[in-house]
Design a protein around this nucleic acid. Structure first.
Lengths: 237, 237
DNA sequence: ATGTTTTTTAAAGTTTTTTTCACGGATAAC
DNA sequence: GTTATCCGTGAAAAAAACTTTAAAAAACAT
């Protein structure tokens, strides 16, 4: 039996929109908890621990961004953000603050449901893939032991400094995905420290040098100009 | 049972054209609601909630643009705009205001029906295709991996620069829909940077070159003179 | 304190990307 | 048919981004 009784926390101040979305979600078989203020949302999140959050950014008491950051500090729950069409910049901020997806009003019910499905699917996938904080990561010759924080290329161990290891571990946990500079920098140094791209680049160079890539050989770490880095997970022939 | 009884709201002031189109649509199996003024159209839209709107821009009481914007504020319903050939700029304005497609008079019944089918198909598809930044986009040989920011034609990877990728990704997220220059430029460079159409053209040329279209073969990216670009999602024979 | 390792900063060098420009072909208007 | 406008193309200039190397600063251990 496909029991789709996911719990969804809906945070929206306009009551008519709240009811509309609530109805759509319930009709699709989700259990919906609907609130209109940020403070209420925070307490209900703590007590109910929903599987997903749909969050309107234009909240009365506090900015929805506050809720977003507060939740993201401790939880990995997928968050879909709603906002009016005009505020284009909010989109970037919300995604940077940890939102999983972004829907601009107006939107159709099918679109919302599709996004909900994707977000839930991805979060399930993540919980199977990401908690590899222990165990090890293997990619061709490269082996990372997360618990011992040790890295090998084939049989020989590669000594990495703390930051070098942190960067590599971060990339490996998102292997194959292009990770932006700001994402990496935030993960390693905490703040979006302006000017830190240089540091990142130097560290990357050091890691690559220690990996000792033969010229012509495909590199483990791929750079996309102006975007970021990603681990190359393609099979070699 | 395939019940294709889509509701179409037709807004056209000239009664003979209205009847003609109405007949064409009914014959094709659509349920048509035909009105001649903007105010009537708005109230009938609210009460009937049609699946698609066909809108003539040259309305007597108010400009059709008013209707377009009013509907777009709250609904995602596909809107096809009719306009006389001479008013070239109206098309662009209508698309920028959120119209999904446009047809220039005079037009054949087959053309109109084809556009109706595409618009309906796209609005349904969107809810399953759009789920933004994750997943991938597939169109014939073309594959886009959004999370890895990688593009393939068949088996071979195509390296695109950042702006080239951004443009293609933008088009793919609105696949099949004609995107105006200003819309694309705003999405890629941020401001409606005057004079950037040239840059856009150069980037388009580069993308197409990298795609390596054989001469005679239908291109992935289609241009409409004075309007913009769109991804060609039509089936090839 | 001294020496070693790591992190940060700086600068030169190289590659890639972005922008600009001029010309030719295509399309629409007259 | 002629003209004006718009788009595609190729190439070169300009700008931006990355790598590499090296040295200063900071952290750490002895």
């Amino acid at each position: 039996m496909s029991n789709n009784k996911y719990k969804i926390l809906l945070v929206e101040d306009e009551s008519n929109i709240r009811n509309l979305i609530s109805t759509i979600l319930e009709a699709a078989g989700y259990h919906t908890i609907a609130v209109g203020t940020c403070s209420l949302a925070l307490s209900l999140f703590a007590s109910h621990v929903p599987d997903l959050v749909i969050l309107d950014l234009g909240l009365p008491d506090r900015d929805g961004m506050y809720f977003l950051q507060a939740v993201r500090k401790e939880h990995n729950t997928p968050i879909i953000v709603l906002s009016a069409r005009s505020h284009e910049k909010d989109k970037v901020d919300a995604l940077d603050a940890g939102a999983n997806d972004y829907v601009t009003k107006p939107f159709g019910s099918e679109e919302l449901l599709a996004r909900v499905r994707t977000a839930l699917r991805n979060s399930r996938m993540n919980s199977d893939t990401l908690p590899s904080h222990d165990g090890k990561f293997i990619l061709r010759e490269l082996v990372i032991h997360y618990d011992a924080r040790r890295v090998f290329i084939g049989d020989t161990e590669i000594h990495l400094t703390q930051t070098e290891y942190n960067i590599l571990a971060y990339l490996s946990m998102h292997a194959g995905k292009m990770m932006t500079y700001s994402a990496i920098i935030k993960a390693i140094w905490g703040q979006s420290d302006e000017g830190s791209i240089k540091k990142l680049q130097v560290n990357m160079a050091n890691i690559r040098k220690k990996f000792g890539a033969k010229p012509g050989e495909e590199n483990y770490i791929i750079n996309e100009l102006g975007v970021g880095y990603r681990l190359n997970i393609d099979q070699k022939n």
